[in-house]
Computed example of a mutant assay.
Amino acid sequence: MTIVAESGPVSAPPRPAARALCPLPTAVDPMALALNENPFPPLPAVRTAMIESVQAANRYPEFLPETLRHLIADHLGVPDEQIVVGAGATGVLVQVMHAFTSPGDRVVLPVPTFEGYPIASAMTRLDVVKVPLLADGHHDLDAMAEAASGARLVVVCRPHNPTGTVESLGALEGFLSRLPSDTIVILDEAYVEFVAPQWRIDALALLERFPNVLVLRTFSKAYGLAGLRIGYAIGSWPLTAELWSMQLPFGIANIGLVAVDASYRAENQLRQRIRMITAERRNLRTRLRAMGVASIDGHANFVYLPGGDRPWHEVFDGADGVRVKHCADGGVRITVGGRSSTGAVLAALRRAER
């Protein structure tokens, strides 16, 4: 067949070949150590609930995620009105920026940090004020407080991504006390489940004292549901009311709701998995230390090797399959996986020393 155009006959383009099925990532890839994913597939009860939910895939989810909101609020012991949900913690972050900022407003970020923050800031056309971390991987809270003058948003991660450090409650309270009451502080607790009890803080009590704080959490890390994209924020009613008014209709799939419900019911098994991950984190740091490799004492599901004289991009170049996160400051963040993942990391280091 030919198509006749004004300039003369033109041959019809060839028909595209049949489209192949989209390949899915394997559930357990011991070499995938760049995204801080949980190395385990969803818990058995969670998988069962997710499979059963597929039977209702022809039906819309709730217009607004009232049931999921209630589930999370009930689990935390707060009123439903203090919870807002979104497509992962990053989705909630974008909601926050849309709700409370205008183009040209300033946001204060520690650097390096989770790359979603500068991306979301660019999407919402915010001016980013970058405050470098201290040498030990902690936030420079004094410098951040000074930079926050006139800023609309300030971000603090606890544990921090990519270093895994946690700020003390006293330091955090002192920092918050120095900020204007109309400056919104995002306290990112994406990895809070991996923090040992002695390092935990009562974020809900913090919200009562500082109503300009929004606590950001996710089901992507400890809960192992990164592929479902479910995150939430806890905050004071004036902030969450504004966010809820902008909640995306039909924005949370039914499979996410049932997965969260099943995860909460399997909390004991979840805690066991968290203990396995934190134990392997200690093992990895111990083995690294025995090789003379310094790492920051982190509290998440990853280990951070600071930049310096050692060219980490040559050690972890991906040629052997080990995929880690290379950070802008020259450091490298390594997700904690299983014992085979630890072995692959150590083997890469040994090869680089030859």
Rank of each mutant, 00 (worst) to 15 (best):
H98D: 15
L153S: 03
R275Q: 12
T335M: 02
G298E: 03
R106T: 04
G88E: 03
H139N: 12
P238N: 11
Y191S: 13
P14S: 14
E81P: 00
V185H: 00
L169W: 08
P311M: 01
A190E: 11
T278S: 04
P16K: 08
G91A: 02
L248Q: 15
G343L: 02
L68H: 01
I230Y: 01
A87V: 00
A352T: 00
V131E: 09
V156K: 10
V315E: 02
G8P: 10
T335W: 03
A57G: 01
I201T: 06
T165H: 12
R287P: 03
W244R: 14
V324T: 15
E173A: 06
V129R: 08
S263W: 05
G298M: 09
V185R: 00
V128C: 08
V131T: 11
A253T: 03
V213M: 08
G330V: 04
R125D: 09
Q272W: 08
I184T: 12
A45N: 13
G224P: 09
N283G: 04
G318R: 06
F114T: 10
P110M: 05
A203G: 11
P311A: 02
G86N: 08
D74Y: 04
S149F: 05
P79M: 09
S295Y: 02
V166C: 15
E314N: 06
L204G: 02
R323C: 13
I230W: 01
S11R: 11
P118S: 12
R47K: 14
V108C: 11
A99K: 03
